[in-house]
Design a protein around this nucleic acid. Sequence first.
DNA 1: AGCATGCGTCCACTTTACTGGACATGACTC
DNA 2: GAGTCATGTCCAGTAAAGTGGACGCATGCT
Lengths: 110, 110
Amino acid sequence: MKRKRSYARQTREALSVLGKLIRIGRMERGMTAQELADRVGISRTTLYNIEKGAPGAEIGTVFEAAALAGVRLFDQDDTALRTENARLAEKLTLLPKSVRPSRTEVDDDF
Amino acid sequence: MKRKRSYARQTREALSVLGKLIRIGRMERGMTAQELADRVGISRTTLYNIEKGAPGAEIGTVFEAAALAGVRLFDQDDTALRTENARLAEKLTLLPKSVRPSRTEVDDDF
DNA sequence: AGCATGCGTCCACTTTACTGGACATGACTC
DNA sequence: GAGTCATGTCCAGTAAAGTGGACGCATGCT
């Protein structure tokens, strides 16, 4: 049977960071949670959990969401890894309390 | 209901690469599939699927396996990302057909 | 060669994540 | 303030992932 698991701190942090990267990438592209969820093919609830860093989500959907949000993942030559992520990561601490893509203009620098 | 999904090429590649990194890291540490599975708290079957790059696996267990196998994931300052992975990635193409950690010596350079 | 060990893979059963809907809250516009 | 839109969060039903066991095969040891 499937058991409830515990995760190392490093694992939880990685999940949290990836979730935030996805959220930042999504907002930068002016997508609502619903829009991204539709493109990935999951419910908004699940995307919300992914962005929160839930460990139970399927890795395929998480990676797909990341890809559609512009987050670089593991590549054959993983030199490409940092390029985009590093830029996004700079904004990790700037996450607004309640996030919502501006309706008046998109692609602002929030 | 849960639907069967399709994934972008980029997503499948990321999954495949991560799986291989885990396998390489595990072998470098002289761990059998069973040992790593036990430490993560999953079955050998599931670990096998993860190393194969199955998109359905839970991201928490995949990241945990990666952490225990020495693969660096997403960090707060993601400068650390490449260091270890780049070294492992050099061996991506050298994967032996049938893998098994040598019993006589561990930590060899294969 | 014979034996032991680890991997590749299948299957029926069980547990879990995903879903869709619903409701509250926060933020922006008029 | 009223109206709108996006997010935060909960829940019961349902489909899918995880499990343990089993079997064959490859590899390494003696």
